[in-house]
């Protein structure tokens, strides 16, 4: 990628096939600009999660090139995959927290992996928790929190190292409408800080009133 075009993600003719003759993604092309927030929508099985997994190198594309921050990540080595994931922020539908870790320890994990020192870790974890409204629950264990709170811990973990790119796969899937709207507002605030965000969701009602780009997937291709 020529970084002068300001794209943080580029998909060039990307296809992903899990089993013979069934493409999860078919010849997908799209860009996400730096600082842009976009929604990836579509019914279940449309390929939303596959697309996010390709960006996070949790899957390898069958065809085409995926470029993140100027680097082609289509065929990364194992250490390259780890480096890419450390650079990103990822929010999962089921939060993916470690149950025997405190909220603080969960949020500190990416910082530890990046080699931050303890004092730098604490100076980043607490603000991240404050941002998601859990500043007073740092010492609690993740299992002692509600589902909504756990999801917010997951977001805090994803943003603690201030990643330039945040990927979220159905982050509001397990939440009630009020809480989902609250989480969505949080993403909007993060985007205002300059973070590029790509959110996969099937909840069109939640994003209908928001003025962000919507990428609609249907059977592995972007709808026109």
């Amino acid at each position: 990628m020529n970084s002068s075009n300001n794209n943080i993600i580029e998909f060039r003719n990307v296809s992903k096939r899990y089993v013979a003759y069934e493409d999860a993604l078919k010849n997908v092309n799209f860009d996400l600009k730096l600082g842009e927030m976009a929604f990836l929508t579509g019914p279940s099985g449309a390929g939303k999660s596959t697309l996010l997994k390709l960006i996070a190198a949790m899957e390898e594309s069958t065809l085409g090139d995926i470029i993140v921050a100027g680097q082609n990540i289509s065929h990364l080595s194992r250490s390259g995959v780890a480096s890419l994931r450390r650079a990103l922020g990822m929010v999962f539908q089921d939060a993916q927290l470690l149950e025997n870790y405190t909220v603080y320890e969960n949020v500190a994990l990416p910082l530890t992996l990046l080699g931050f020192r303890e004092k730098d870790i604490s100076s980043r974890v607490q603000p991240a928790l404050e941002l998601v409204g859990l500043g007073d629950k740092a010492r609690r264990y993740a299992t002692a929190l509600s589902i909504g709170e756990q999801q917010r811990v997951g977001i805090a973990r994803a943003i603690a190292h201030k990643p330039p790119l945040l990927l979220a796969d159905e982050p509001t899937g397990n939440l009630d409408p009020a809480l989902a709207a609250e989480i969505m507002q949080l993403f909007i605030e993060l985007n205002k800080t300059g973070m590029s965000i790509l959110i996969a969701t099937h909840d069109l009602s939640l994003i209908a009133s928001l003025h962000y780009r919507i990428l609609s997937l249907k059977e592995g291709s972007f709808a026109s």
């Binding site: 921050a69 080699g115 330039p164």
Partner: peptide, 24 residues
């Protein structure tokens, strides 16, 4: 600012993070 964010992401991916690698 946008350029800086892009460079930051690229540097982490290239494992050129500013933190002392030996210490970490």
């Amino acid at each position: 600012w946008r350029k800086y964010r892009l460079a930051e992401l690229a540097s982490i991916m290239k494992r050129e993070h500013k933190n002392n690698r030996l210490v970490s």
